[in-house]
Amino acid sequence: MPVDTVWVVAEITESGPSSITQELLSKARSIATNVAAIAWGPDTASHAAALGEYGATKVYDVGAVGETLPGVPVAGAIAALIEGGDTPDALLVPASYDGRDVAGRLSAKLDRPVLTNVVGLSENGGLSSEHTLFGGTVAATAHFTGEGPQIFVVRAKSFTAEPGGGGAAEVVSAPAPAAGATGTAKVTARHVEERTGPKLDEAAVIVSGGRGLGSADKYEMIEELARLLHGAAGASRAIVDAGWVPYARQVGQTGKTVKPNLYVACGISGATQHLVGMKGSKNIVAINKDQDAPIFSVADLGIVGNVHDVLPALIEALKNR
């Protein structure tokens, strides 16, 4: 028996529902009879068709949140719906910056626990979530034992986004109640870092660099190879922490989970926290000068060599084609 009602916290970007939103709606559709999206922003109604396409029959429109960080108003709007008697069995929330704020705020407001870092969900009378622990070496299944609504915070790329051919979702206004002191954090300026080529979590090819590159300027080789392969450039945490590249490039436990067709790891040792973010890639190539580097244990093709020899030669060969 499927679950009755699941709500998905939907993040809308300038190009429509984000990829994780599409993934969560697709999954929700397969486990629940009724799927609704919770969305915010100045023009949610214009995305009702796209949200419907992935499975939402209803979209609760929180409206524009302006310069307020979304966590407080969105959690407030959801809590108000629930207190008004409209209650889902479960909520699926993206494990993103704002998603985690929404889940944390809502959990405390409703006094309901959360299951986080969810990578799988199954429905068998109730809902069970799957989690990977210890760098992806152990899988655990968990479920809630108390009263709902159940809050699941789900990692990107856990499910496949598949349009279901549904019509436009019905838009229902769900304004955020006054937040008082909690809602006083305001954005005063937004900075967008320049990016060319596909997004890290949507690219079919990802070329990532690590500390083995030796210095920040050598990251240009990674960007050039990514460009030649029409892919995106990624990074290990070591070089993000060192300030060589922005955090948005980080792959791993505390960065992005990626599952491209091809992942090329250059000068990356393959720590469990990095592996957990990329070992779902279809094909993996690793270049590392240490033949015992753990990255080779997941590589389909491992080149034991110096990135300063192999990468320039590879770039040259691709340019000459």
């Binding site: 626990p113 990977t132 809630f144 034992t145 033949q291 093709l301 491992g302 034991v304 030669a313 590879l314």
Partner: peptide, 30 residues
């Protein structure tokens, strides 16, 4: 109000071909 019901080891992804670069590494990647 939550419990773990099942814990299991994840099947390790099998490693593949390892090539020691002696100038042919880039060509093998191509």
């Amino acid at each position: 109000r939550q419990e773990i019901t099942d814990v299991s080891k994840v099947e390790a992804r099998a490693g593949g071909e390892i090539v020691v670069d002696d100038g042919n590494g880039a060509a093998r990647i191509v």
